[in-house]
Nucleic acid binder design. Structure first.
Length: 219
DNA sequence: GCGACAG
DNA sequence: ATCTTGTCGC
């Protein structure tokens, strides 16, 4: 099997092919608010892992009332290992599939991972956004690449690609455009979804709790 | 070449 | 992410 080097990792050739896929998806990412209407229903998705099984939860909330409108779970087998900058291979299938059982529509999808704040501007959130043609925001708990400016914006290859959101006494979260939204709006929306004493925007925080509970409910 | 590296 | 004990701080 032929190999190549990707960011220091020796990879199988399909990962090298994935670089091309990511580059093509990146060209399709739109960093503008589309559609230009009020975003009310927001869906957050997270995945927990246990014994090579992925336990996925989606939580759909009303941004204004902060009430949960709907919540669904699915379980599926994991097909790819985790490789930095190729997280989409591991987690995208679960996310694509958990949107199917949702009965209610959403205006925006919140993803646990980066959007364009990625070496090839195609993190999980951007990949999902382009694939399902829906607005998405990437929210990650640690940074993958880029340099943080004095104003907390993050530069990747000379382009402002993300924002380091800091709440006193808490670890930061990193926000970036997934698809069909601009960075300033993404920051505003995420801020609005983080409860006073919390760190993670509510739809993602709940999805994290629910997916872990689902994973632990299986003997 | 070395180190860093979403979940 | 997950595994996993005690320990430090408020």
């Amino acid at each position: 099997m032929s190999n190549s080097t990707v960011s220091g990792n020796t990879t199988s050739h399909y990962l090298a092919a994935t670089i091309n896929v990511q580059s093509e998806i990146a060209k399709k990412v739109i960093s503008e608010n589309i559609p230009n209407k009020e975003i009310i229903y927001i869906c957050g998705v997270d995945v927990a892992y246990r014994n090579n099984i992925a336990y996925c939860s989606a939580v759909l909330m009303n941004k204004n009332s902060m009430e949960v409108k709907e919540s669904v779970n699915i379980t599926l087998s994991v097909k790819h290992p985790y490789v930095p900058s190729f997280f989409m291979l591991r987690e995208s299938e679960a996310i694509i599939n958990i949107l199917k059982p949702l009965k209610n529509r959403f205006d925006l999808l919140l993803i646990d991972g980066h959007g364009v704040l990625h070496p090839r501007r195609c993190g999980l959130a951007s990949y999902i956004g382009v694939i399902i043609d829906s607005p998405t925001i990437g929210v990650a708990k640690s940074i993958l690449c880029g340099s943080v400016n004095a104003d907390h914006f993050i530069d990747v290859d000379g382009v402002i690609s993300g924002f380091k959101m800091i709440k006193e006494k808490k670890k930061p979260i990193y926000i970036s455009v997934g698809h069909k939204i601009n960075l300033v709006n993404a920051i505003r929306i995420v801020k609005q979804l983080v409860k006073p004493e919390e760190r993670i925007p509510e739809p993602l925080r709940l999805a994290d709790i629910y997916s872990k509970a689902l994973a632990n409910s299986v003997p």
